[in-house]
Amino acid sequence: MGFEVLLKGNNLARLLGGLGVALKISLLSVCISLILGTVLGSLMNDRHPLIKGVLRGYLEIVRIMPQLVLLFLAYFGTTRVLGINISAQTASILVFSFWGTAEMSDLVRGALSGIPPIQYESSMALGFSDFQTLVHIIIPQIVRRMIPLSINLITRMIKTTSLIMMIGIVEVLKVGQQIIEANRKSDPNAAFGIYFTVFILYFAVCWPISKLSRYLEKKWEA
């Protein structure tokens, strides 16, 4: 079935190393997205037309453009048009943060718009400043709704990172391909075993995280 290849040499370790590369990139982008997304999301309900328009446009671009196209634009496009030469890793972190920030800010906006206006009015009547209202009144209320949704976003970002192989980063799928190529003669069926393993690896990473998100959602619903 092609599973024997995994035990040859350090093939399994190499696959795991590849997964590590993918995870490193996704976790870095997750951190950036969570922070920037929260900031942008709180601005999203701003009434200033310019801020509103720019943010809307940004969300719409992310909603419509496939992440792979954004990756190509960042990796091949910038070099050609702007003459900057960024590494594939930098390009992918940039793109995933760009995408994740939009998703996160939309989640924050959704949670914020679920807060009834009377909350703002009451805290204003009690003499809170805008900033104090946000920190002491609003954020404690939306955190519980936000955490399961953001954990869900993390699994989506991890899954999307598999695209980085298309711009030449050596991650788990690419390592898998290399192993299959190297053992073409001795193990013609390696493709089944290797790709099955990669499949299981991704599942092993994402499944516990989505379980956690589902668990927290249920727990805090009541």
């Binding site: 899954k159 799928l173 898998g176 790709y195 599942f203 994402c206």
Partner: peptide, 12 residues
């Protein structure tokens, strides 16, 4: 299928 990327599914 919800917890694995499409790219990996297609390769498989």
């Amino acid at each position: 299928f919800r917890n694995t990327p499409l790219l990996v599914q297609l390769f498989f």
